[in-house]
Amino acid sequence: MQNLSLLKLLHLVSPALPIGAYAYSQGQEWAVDKAWIKKPEEVEAWLTGLLQHGVAQLDLPALIRLYCAWENDDVASVRYWNQFVLACRETQELLLEDQQLGIALSRLLVSLDIARHEKVFSDSPSLVSMFALAGVSWHIPCDELLQGYCWSWMENQVAAATKTVPLGQTQAQQILQRAMTAIPHAVSTAKQVEDDNMGLGLPGLAIASSMHERQYSRLFRS
């Protein structure tokens, strides 16, 4: 059998994957509006900070646990960690984003003949849960799946910044080149995170996202 895992990963993290991730900025739009982020260096600092202190503390450790749970057909653990991620989402917008991307990926996987999750959730699932299922179903090694998740998140955040800050295309690519070097460290951090320490929050981001919910004029849904 051919090893297609790399190609499957590229498929999963492609910005053309029709789940609508481009519609969300995760509070960045408000942070820019508030002039917390003005320059390309500040975009980069914002992203690497969120990656190391947010994504690496919740999304990635949960992705590892959900990957194992799907691999072992452990539905109770899938439900538990899915619920845990949703309970950690700081605001309604961040929760809604996670569930809307989750349900979109869930539907897409069904159309690609993956249906193991159909009776598992009574709420819309977290994106993290569906990402893990795609990884397991397509035999993508967990390590690569983690990096792919970070990449996909980062590329989307930079794409948002091109509109909010705004940035030129070249600046955006330069930020990506530099910021991606933080991904391996985030992945190794995530592997060390124990259950009781998962989900460390970011107070400033939580406020930014709450305020974005009431932002008068906006391009993004989060």
């Binding site: 989402r89 605001t91 917008e93 929760l95 709420d123 819309s124 709450s210 919910e213």
Partner: peptide
């Protein structure tokens, strides 16, 4: 200040 009302979306 940041205020928010979390509401889970139900499954399809």
């Amino acid at each position: 200040w940041g205020l928010t009302q979390k509401q889970l979306a139900s499954a399809p």
